[in-house]
Nucleic acid binder design. Structure first.
Lengths: 205, 205
DNA sequence: AGATAAAAATGAATACACTCATTTTTGTTG
DNA sequence: CAACAAAAATGAGTGTATTCATTTTTATCT
């Protein structure tokens, strides 16, 4: 790892960026995303309104900035939780249980993020999202791979498509949960049901 | 079907609502969602700005209103297209091909909708979305049911969860397509791959 | 019909995201 | 260090979604 050469200018920028993200996080959690104004964030971070827009092209971009850091940790935590279980289905449920818990801790924020993720326009943001998705897929693929060596999953099963299938089910139901179509209990049960179905396959007699 | 007793008042409201939705549809298609102002729509519909907000609590709600009508037709069309094919996987691909085509016709609009669907706050809108989802699930369940009688799908497979699994894969990849992570070709291939995987099951050797 | 109440419509006023011409800070060169 | 150029920061200005006190329309009485 080459240590980045941080000029005073870049150091200041990074520090400022950190203050803005921290301020955004605090206000989003306290007042909610909608009720938080850019002015709020600017004041708390000790910068002007215009400066905030130098670091985030739109208010919603702040969501991605806030979540990117946090989510990376949550995904790791989810993977560790999964490893404590034996069967693949239990592992997957444990994995997404951690992620769902995280979202449940701050529903308004999770809802705002969910919307933002519906369509990401900015290339920079897209990279950040892709990175998080990859982090999820990688962990899921590792769980499936391990299940293969245990004989739970057939050797021919394609890792990445399987991981995406699994994530797709989780994601759809997470949306249902966040929008209030279903409660957390039903969410948990439906997700498990889908994982079992995917493992068995529709074709099975 | 009991004909609704339409008082003059309700008649006017319905007509006005129709004008607003038509105006919104036209402007969204022509200028795009963002660039369309409520004033545009109000002028074209021959009402005031305030009146538009009487029929849609927020600008984004107009998206749901516009799509609800259109989508109902598209889903029917998708189902009819599916019936022209023999195997379940081909049927599913044909089904979602029609829906994806519809979205592809107006990408900016589809993207705006995708975001809106990320979290639906209003109860009325939620009902509209639920109705569309049910329409999808019902058709998919019918296809699976038919596949059961052909022996393609095991008798024990739960219809609705299977339909949701199928839709979840489609929906995740549609998001990827609309956001520009993948192109249409890749979208088609990935969706098919997922359907095959779901049919076979991960457990299969 | 005229009077009255309820519903619907109005558009000026408000609040806030976002822009951009100007100013300030930082880095570089002689 | 002074002078200059490039980068960053600023905040008043702009446009538009949304609100709400007021006005207009519709329905229901006597």
């Amino acid at each position: 790892m080459a240590q980045a050469p941080l000029s005073r200018r870049d150091q200041n920028k990074l520090e400022k960026r950190g203050r803005i993200i921290a301020a955004a996080r605090a206000f989003f959690a306290q007042k909610g995303f909608e009720a938080t104004t850019i002015q709020d964030i600017a004041d708390a971070a000790g910068v002007s309104v215009g400066t905030v827009f130098l670091y985030a092209k739109a208010k919603e971009d702040l969501l991605i900035l806030v979540f990117h850091d946090e989510m990376t940790g949550v995904i790791d935590q989810a993977y560790r939780a999964a490893l404590k279980h034996a069967g693949l289905v239990d592992q997957l449920c444990a994995f997404f249980d951690v992620e769902a818990d995280y979202h449940e801790r701050d529903l308004p924020l999770a809802r705002a993020l969910m919307r933002k993720l519906g369509y990401v326009d900015n290339a920079e943001q897209r990279d950040a999202v892709t990175e998080l998705m990859s982090a999820n897929y990688t962990r899921l693929a590792m769980l499936i791979e391990a299940a293969k060596t245990r004989g739970e999953v057939g050797a021919a099963a394609p890792l990445l498509p399987a991981a995406r299938s699994i994530f797709a089910c989780y994601y759809l139901h997470l949306g249902g949960f966040l929008s209030g179509y279903i409660d957390r209990d039903r969410f948990d049960r439906m997700v498990r049901e889908h994982f079992e179905l995917l493992l068995k396959g529709l074709g099975a007699g």
